[in-house]
Design a protein around this nucleic acid. Structure first.
Length: 274
DNA sequence: ATAGATCTCCGGCAGC
DNA sequence: TGCTGCCGGAGATCTA
């Protein structure tokens, strides 16, 4: 599941690998990931152009040309992989972009939860999907009082609230569990009940956990591959996620897995108390 | 207006 | 070997 660190890992690699290369061929398959209008635009308006910028916002990746933005969301199982030489597309490849030097960029997505959309060049905040997103956790722009104010209106468990993309952008199921363990907060605690010290620890944990994951190239639990087809390394650094019944790294407790709002939630009942 | 609950999409994979 | 059910980001829809 590509969350902020995985998308950022892909973004930094693509910035190095594809920018400035002239696009000489485009192939689009299927219509679920790429809607028919986007398909039309991709075929008409990308050929012979170049990507000049590669950005990330939340879990979205944006490849910009001189006069367009191509927006990607990788959903559950999307991958964006660069091949230095031509490669036969797999059966789940929805978009293949060939560059003039013979290299290729493939978007593949077996479960088709991902989306690709074409937009004319707009300020990011005018792209509808991005306009709905909340704070960037690594921008340093979240003030504790604003965060506290937003939480005050939410009675839902804190885990659900930090995964709400409209409030904070980029945190999914894996990092939500990791961040709450790092900050010693019970995932079921209503957001509005967080104390000031908890708020501070939570903000710090968001930065620490997400940056550590980026430094290790993301988390590959099942299938994540970076832009060069490699696995990330952060799955070996996870403290609680997928570590059911392992000893807690911090206390004498045992990591448990429970359902919260339909999502697998890993936590230590010893050090994450209400 | 807003928060929250529920439903939907899809195919890999675990479990039987 | 083959079948069945589970899982999940985010948008839509409904309720309170």
């Amino acid at each position: 599941m590509p969350e902020l660190p995985e998308v950022e890992t892909i973004r930094s690699a693509l910035a190095r690998l594809v920018l400035g290369k002239r696009i000489c061929q485009v192939r689009v398959a299927g219509k679920r990931v790429i809607d028919p209008l986007t398909k039309k635009h991709i075929r008409k308006e990308i050929l012979d152009h170049r990507f000049v910028t590669c950005l990330r916002r939340g879990k979205y990746l944006i490849l910009q040309g001189k006069d367009f933005s191509l927006l990607f969301h990788l959903g559950m199982s999307g991958s964006l992989i660069f091949f230095p030489k031509s490669k036969t597309p797999g059966k789940h490849t929805h978009l293949l972009i060939r560059f003039h030097d013979g290299s290729e960029l493939h978007y593949a997505d077996p479960r088709t939860f991902g989306r690709i959309r074409f937009y004319p060049l707009l300020p990011l905040e005018r792209i509808p999907e991005l306009s709905r997103l909340g704070w960037e956790p690594l921008d340093g722009g979240i003030s504790l009082s604003e965060l506290g104010k937003a939480f005050k209106r939410r009675s839902a468990p804190i885990k659900q609230v930090i995964m709400d993309q409209r409030l904070i952008a980029g945190i999914g199921n894996i990092y939500a569990s990791e961040i709450l363990f790092d900050s010693s907060i019970d995932p079921w605690k209503p957001a509005r009940d967080l104390t000031r010290p908890e708020l501070g620890r939570l903000r710090r944990a968001m930065e620490r956990v997400l940056s550590a994951a980026i430094d290790e190239g993301g988390t590959s639990i099942i299938s994540f591959q970076d832009a060069e087809g490699r696995r990330g390394g952060h799955q070996n650094s996870l403290q609680v996620y997928s570590r059911i019944e392992s000893p807690c790294p911090r206390c004498e407790g045992i990591i448990l897995k429970r359902n919260l709002g339909g999502r697998a939630t890993y936590y230590c009942p010893g050090c994450q108390r209400k």
